[in-house]
């Protein structure tokens, strides 16, 4: 049981707990859906550890998870873009591109090898979405208190995580030979650090989401 407590699972469970506390009664179903997504993330992480100990290859678990990752993140971006523009064309194109690469990779190397190319494309999409969101935010005439903007910090987490993981995505094939400890290679540590940044930003974003509700109740 002890082995399931990795830095990744711990930060994910903390983020899930904060999401449950902050978003359970949220007015937006899209924000509430983040609870479900984080629950799926935690289950995937624990499932991934379990499968790797049983069968050594847990890539198929993450191949399933990437579907949820793409779906929920696109849903959230659609929700954020809708405040400024009609998001449907961008989001539908993004999802279509993702599906195309996903099917192509499954077709080419099967379900039991991780879809690295699909993940790299998805990362690039999310980076572009984040940059476009900030562009829309700057262009908008209204003022938003960014320190307490849940949208801003949610996108910040995405941008930090997916932009910074670009190097890992690029050198994916070479990374397996770069071992830092006998058990873990370099990308494991990089993603551990990026996960901490991502879930910290998201946790803060969920707290910001809860903040105005708490304030009005006082």
């Amino acid at each position: 049981m002890y082995n399931y407590f990795t830095p990744n699972t711990i930060i994910e469970v903390i983020c899930l707990t904060i999401a449950v506390i902050s978003l359970l009664k949220d007015s937006s179903w899209v924000w509430r859906s983040m609870i479900l997504y984080l629950l799926i993330t935690c289950l995937t992480e624990i499932g991934g550890i379990y499968v790797s100990r049983q069968a050594h290859n847990n890539h198929w678990v993450y191949n399933i998870f990437i579907l949820f990752e793409a779906g929920f993140t696109h849903l959230m971006f659609a929700h954020l873009f809708n405040k400024y523009i009609n998001s449907k064309p961008i989001i539908i194109c993004g999802l279509a591109l993702f599906c195309l690469f996903y099917v192509y990779e499954i077709e080419s190397h099967g379900f039991f090898r991780y879809n690295h190319l699909t993940y790299a494309i998805l990362s690039a999409q999310f980076v572009l979405y984040s940059l476009y969101y900030y562009y829309l935010l700057i262009q908008d005439h209204g003022y938003v208190n960014l320190k307490q903007s849940s949208d801003f910090w949610w996108v910040a987490g995405i941008l930090f995580f997916y932009f910074s993981s670009t190097a890992c995505n690029f050198f994916d094939d070479k990374l397996y030979s770069v071992m830092i400890t006998p058990k873990h290679h370099l990308s494991y540590f990089i993603f551990k650090g990026l996960n901490i940044i991502l879930y910290s930003c998201w946790s803060y974003s969920f707290i910001c989401r809860k903040w105005p509700i708490t304030k009005s109740e006082i």
């Binding site: 900030y134 190097a167 070479k174």
Partner: peptide, 21 residues
């Protein structure tokens, strides 16, 4: 060399969004 390169690129790519924000 690969390790150093990836670490440097990751750090740079981590700083860039910081500047953007």
């Amino acid at each position: 060399e690969i390790r150093n390169l990836i670490i440097i690129i990751t750090v740079v790519f981590l700083i860039a969004p910081g500047f953007l924000l």
